[in-house]
Computed example of a mutant assay.
Amino acid sequence: MAGNLEWEIATMREQMTQIATPRKFPMRKPDNHQPVIQRYSSQVSEDVSSIRVATLGFQGKAGPRDNLTAFLDFIDNAFAKIGKPNHHDIANFVDTQGYSTAMAVCYWLDEDDYSAWLEKFDLWWGAHDPEALENGLWFESFSVPPPYRETNLFQEYLRGVSACPMTRIEPMSESGYWGAARDRFSASAHDDFSPEQNVELQYDPHRDTLRKHIKVSDIPSQLCVIRSGVTWANCGEEQLESYETNLKPKLDKGMTYLRENPVDTGCCSLRQVTCLEADGSAQEEAYSLGIFLTYRHLERWAHDHPTHLAIYTRALAERKKYQENLELLTYHEICVLNEDVRFEYINCHPDTGLLPYFTNNAADQ
């Protein structure tokens, strides 16, 4: 009963919005569509003009625990000197070149707060000598206007921007059909996310990047960033076994395909990470962080490729089977960026982030 009421509220809100702001492009949602399970989206207040996201990364050839301990010290030192974001979380993974890697993804909802943080950060960041570092460091940041961000989540499982204390969580009915993600962007009412010009990736993993501080330039506008996560912490034996046997192998296959085929898919970077507690212990949670040339590249893979169709149909089968008793919780957030991006790498190997694709410029020291 509660689920139906929430769906009706979400539908009424959507209808009122359409009346207030007529759409140039129609929604994809079928008439009278009702999701199998109630999902939610996170919203920010009207005075938030942009959302700031920055990833601080740390890579090295040492053992995973050695690098993780060093990274936690690195983050503690950074935040002690320059302040904390509105929200951040930490994770680790081993990359395609065998480097043990850890990262913190940071979020701000106030432009002035971010600007004050960035001023201190630049002083601290610029003091790192790439010739003296034993490990690699990276800083990948962007801003996104709220209409160019969409989320799909359970209200019990808030991550990313949705975990910021200033966001609000609302029921929505745009889930469980093809094109739902596009419909969740309020910007999709007037923007079809067509790139200004056709851009294709040129992959070159053999650039000279070690012992250097590099700023990547010539990054095209309208990059698309997706963070898609899952937690099995609440799963009983049956649903955990179903996830590990039926869904996770399909998810891993899809992520491997994107990682190994950047030119064909437009996927510039794909990191599969394990989420960590503040002390570095692993959580029963993971996510994939992907960067695509455009939203249309992501959408093309999602709509057409067998690896995503396998993920989607299996996840939908789990929802239909367990419905309100579903114990496996998922979320994602997708951002379509403008030109306000910054990607920098200090002493990182040449297959890190965007280094293999766009112009590498040495930073002024």
Rank of each mutant, 00 (worst) to 15 (best):
M1Q: 06
E8A: 15
E8C: 09
I9E: 14
T11H: 04
M12F: 09
M12W: 11
Q18Y: 01
A20G: 02
R23Q: 12
K29L: 06
P35V: 05
P35M: 05
I37N: 14
I37S: 14
S41Q: 07
Q43K: 09
V44N: 03
E46M: 07
E46L: 08
E46A: 14
D47I: 12
S49H: 11
R52C: 08
A54E: 01
T55H: 03
F58Y: 12
G60W: 00
A62P: 01
P64A: 10
P64C: 03
R65C: 05
R65Q: 15
A70M: 11
L72K: 08
L72G: 07
D73H: 12
D73R: 07
K84C: 11
P85L: 04
N92H: 02
T96L: 11
T96N: 13
T101P: 01
M103N: 09
V105T: 14
C106F: 09
E111D: 13
K120V: 04
D122R: 10
W124S: 13
A127S: 14
P130K: 04
P130R: 04
G136A: 04
F139M: 06
E156M: 00
Y157S: 04
R159Y: 10
S162T: 12
S162L: 10
C164P: 03
T167D: 03
E170V: 15
S173L: 03
S175I: 08
S175V: 13
S175P: 04
W178Y: 09
A180M: 10
D183C: 04
A189V: 04
D192M: 09
F193Y: 09
P195L: 01
E196Y: 05
H206A: 15
D208A: 06
T209P: 02
I214C: 02
I214S: 00
V216L: 02
P220D: 10
L223P: 02
L223V: 05
C224V: 01
C224R: 00
V225M: 04
I226A: 13
S228N: 14
C235I: 01
C235W: 02
E237K: 11
Q239C: 05
S242R: 12
E244L: 13
N246F: 09
L247N: 00
K253W: 10
T256Q: 14
Y257N: 02
P262W: 08
D264R: 06
D264M: 03
C268R: 00
S269H: 13
Q272T: 13
V273A: 07
V273K: 03
A278S: 11
D279M: 06
D279N: 13
E284G: 12
T294K: 03
R296K: 07
W301E: 03
D304C: 11
D304V: 11
D304Y: 05
I311R: 00
E318P: 07
K320S: 15
E333A: 07
I334E: 02
L337R: 00
L337Q: 02
E339H: 00
V341G: 01
Y345G: 00
I346A: 08
H349E: 08
P350F: 07
T352M: 00
T352G: 00
P356I: 05
T359M: 09
T359A: 14
N361M: 05
